[in-house]
C-alpha cells in the first residue's frame, strides 16, 4: 500500500506549478516573513527602539504563532486555494483521461480512498511546516524585540498541545469536508474549472442555508432549523465558540435552544467526512469512465 501512496504523492508533488502556488506558497511565505521579520528586528535593535516596539505588538505568547498558522486554511483565501488544488487533483484525472490507467490496476475504491488519504497527509505536512515556521519565528522574534512570551512550563505545554490538536483537527476536518465536496463536483463536471466553481459555490454558499431556514419559516411555515444544525458551518462554529469560551451565538435559534455538546459537533463533522468519502466512492464505482 505504501507504493500506492508514493504513486499518488509523485503525482501531487510533481505538479510543480499547482503545488507551489496553491500549497507550498503558504509555508514558504511563512518562512520568508519570519526570516524577514527577524532580520529587520536585528537591524532595528541597533538603533530603532520604536520599530522593535511596533513589532512587539504583533506578538502574543509563545503558543500564538503555532496556533495562528492552523487558522489559515479556514480563511477564505486558504479555503479558496485549497479547493483549486483539490479540484486539480480530482478533476485532473478526468481532464487528462488518466483514471483508466489506474482503475484497471487497482479497484476503484482503493484508488479513490488513497487519493483522499494522500491529499490529507500532504496538506497536513504543508500546514505543519507553516505552523512551525510561524511559531519558531515568532519566538525568536520575541527574544530579539524583548517581548514577554509568557511562561513555558509543563502546564502551559500541556494546554498548548491540547489547543493545537483541537485547532489542527478542526482545520483538517473542515478542509476534508471541502475536499469531499470537490471530489463529488469533479465527478459530475469532469473538468477542473467546473469543479472549482461548483465546489466554491457549495462550500462558500453553505451558510446561506440560514436564508432557507428563514424563508421556510416565513413563507412555508416549515422549520428547517434542525437541518441547519447538521451543517458543517454550524458545528464548526459551535466547537470554536466552546473552545474560545464565547457565548454560543446561533442565528435564528428558537427560544430556549440548547446547542450541541462539543462532542456531538465533532461527531457530526466526522460523519460528514465519512459520508462524503463513502458517497464519492459509491458514485465512482458506478461511473462510466469515458475520458
Amino acid at each position: 500500500m505504501t507504493a500506492l501512496f508514493r504513486a499518488e504523492w509523485l503525482k501531487l508533488a510533481g505538479n510543480r506549478w499547482a503545488v507551489t502556488f496553491l500549497v507550498w506558497i503558504f509555508p514558504m511565505s511563512a518562512l520568508f516573513m519570519s526570516v524577514g521579520a527577524i532580520v529587520i528586528a536585528l537591524l532595528a535593535s541597533a538603533g530603532s527602539p520604536e520599530t522593535l516596539n511596533d513589532m512587539s505588538q504583533f506578538l502574543t505568547n509563545w503558543q500564538g504563532g503555532f496556533l495562528s498558522a492552523w487558522m489559515f486554511p479556514n480563511s477564505d483565501l486558504g479555503r479558496f486555494t485549497l479547493i483549486i488544488f483539490t479540484a486539480i487533483v480530482f478533476a485532473g484525472e478526468y481532464q487528462h483521461g488518466t483514471w483508466k490507467n489506474l482503475i484497471t490496476r487497482r479497484p476503484r475504491w482503493v484508488i479513490m480512498l488513497n487519493k483522499f488519504f494522500t491529499l490529507g497527509v500532504f496538506i497536513t505536512i504543508a500546514f505543519t511546516m507553516m505552523s512551525l515556521f510561524v511559531g519558531v519565528g515568532s519566538i525568536v522574534l520575541g527574544q530579539i524585540v524583548g517581548h514577554n512570551m509568557g511562561v513555558f512550563d509543563a502546564n502551559s505545554l500541556g494546554e498548548f498541545i491540547r489547543d493545537i490538536i483541537t485547532q489542527m483537527g478542526l482545520t483538517l476536518v473542515t478542509t476534508f469536508i471541502a475536499t469531499g465536496y470537490t471530489a463529488l463536483a469533479a465527478m459530475y463536471t469532469k473538468n477542473i474549472i467546473g469543479t472549482i466553481f461548483t465546489s466554491l459555490l457549495i462550500t462558500l454558499g453553505e451558510p446561506s442555508i440560514l436564508l432557507l431556514v428563514s424563508l421556510g419559516r416565513s413563507l412555508l411555515h416549515i422549520d428547517l432549523f434542525p437541518l441547519y444544525l447538521l451543517t458543517p458551518t454550524h458545528n464548526f462554529g459551535n466547537i470554536r465558540n466552546a473552545e474560545m469560551g464565547y457565548e454560543p451565538f446561533v442565528p435564528l435559534a428558537p427560544e430556549g435552544f440548547v446547542p450541541f455538546s462539543v462532542t456531538v459537533s465533532w461527531l457530526i463533522l466526522i460523519g460528514w467526512i465519512v459520508c462524503l468519502i463513502a458517497f464519492s466512492i459509491r458514485n465512482f464505482n458506478r461511473q462510466d469512465i469515458t475520458a
Partner: peptide, 23 residues
C-alpha cells in the same frame, strides 16, 4: 483512445507512477 498521462510529469515518472500503482 490514445495515450493518457500527466502532462507535467516526464515520461519516465509517468511510468514509475503506474508501476507503483500496480504494485
Amino acid at each position: 483512445e490514445g495515450a493518457s498521462f500527466y502532462p507535467y510529469l516526464t515520461g519516465r515518472k509517468n511510468l514509475i507512477l503506474l508501476a507503483r500503482t500496480h504494485g
